[in-house]
Design a protein around this nucleic acid. Sequence first.
DNA 1: CGATACCAAGCAAGCGCTTGGTTTGTAAAC
DNA 2: GTTTACAAACCAAGCGCTTGCTTGGTATCG
Lengths: 207, 207
Amino acid sequence: MNQDSILRSLIAENLVSDPASARGRLLHEAARLFRDKGYERTTVRDLAAAVGIQSGSLFHHFRTKEDILKAVMVETIRLNTALMQAAMEAATTHRDKLQALIRAELESINGQTGEAMAVLVFEWRSLSEASQAYVLELRDIYEQLWLDVLDALRKDGVLAAEPFVVRRLLTGALSWTVTWYRPDGGLTLDDLTEQVVAMMGLARAEN
Amino acid sequence: MNQDSILRSLIAENLVSDPASARGRLLHEAARLFRDKGYERTTVRDLAAAVGIQSGSLFHHFRTKEDILKAVMVETIRLNTALMQAAMEAATTHRDKLQALIRAELESINGQTGEAMAVLVFEWRSLSEASQAYVLELRDIYEQLWLDVLDALRKDGVLAAEPFVVRRLLTGALSWTVTWYRPDGGLTLDDLTEQVVAMMGLARAEN
DNA sequence: CGATACCAAGCAAGCGCTTGGTTTGTAAAC
DNA sequence: GTTTACAAACCAAGCGCTTGCTTGGTATCG
């Protein structure tokens, strides 16, 4: 399953919005605005203008402004969980599975869904507690993917640190790339993936 | 020079505010509120109430609300640059210098100045561009501390990845701890420092 | 004809900040 | 040692504007 077919099957199951639909376009623009200016600084008038409607008309599609933020986050997590799963299943060794996860997360953060992923990281506090709880549940699913692979590497003796600590350190390291990584800067995502693996002392040459 | 004497000499030079002064107390409360609720969600009425004055009286001490955010960030960077420098000078080998820097940054993020450091990380976009430029200048000073040490480790052959990439990955990994690390969770800051070093394949046993 | 998608207008609340005036601390003048 | 002078610190009130959201109505389309 490639990225596109994963997206299409999620749309078919009504788990994410079709980017071509009115709702999908709004969520895409919302992600961009929320990332660029932050959730609080983005007004419903900004959001409406971005898709060419009146501010009041937004509330025909979403009950509240916060619902828009929640939808951005929920759909992003759903898509990325599916992408991670696919990426990992394609790899064989534990080390390659980790590399595949790192690569996939970097792709999520710095690729097509980057705007939405940045929102997920930096606008967390703007969600109501109830919504946070719901999003956290979804998150746990793909966190487990990481922990399983890291546990295996630990048992292989190639990872010296605690898996759950490593995962959290990696979450920070990879999320943070959104603030500095630019694909046109002479460093490809593959390069960056290798750098992360190298920093962990897991570079291929040493294996 | 211990932490306290560093703080006192910065106060004497008027580079950071005395925590006991009106200004110092306000900045402390502001850091807490900004971290807990975010800059935008914190009103000048919240800030004033936190120090027991009327909202209008704030503007006797600061020209604008943004000036308060800027002051929190600037003073935090000044203090931490001084702390980093001191921590590093106390160590001898390159590896120990790196460990000292990691330990010092974790302390900054999760210790006394943690609230202000979290603001520095998460409220960056709320600063005007002019203020951002000014804060960035201050930041460069201590980023160079890191790069020098990482360069040396690279030349020693114990670090396989690019120093500037490693620094950015570490920035993310360490900053992110503010979202999950709790000192009462059975993991001390020393433990955490060792975990970071271990993740990089630089654990002492292997040296 | 009924549902869906939208517009035009505006409301109530909350926002950062200003204003004019009062209290408080300090130190020289008498 | 009281008086005078003055600035710093603060209050009470509220202004002008923006905010998220509502309302009542209209176009579009199967």
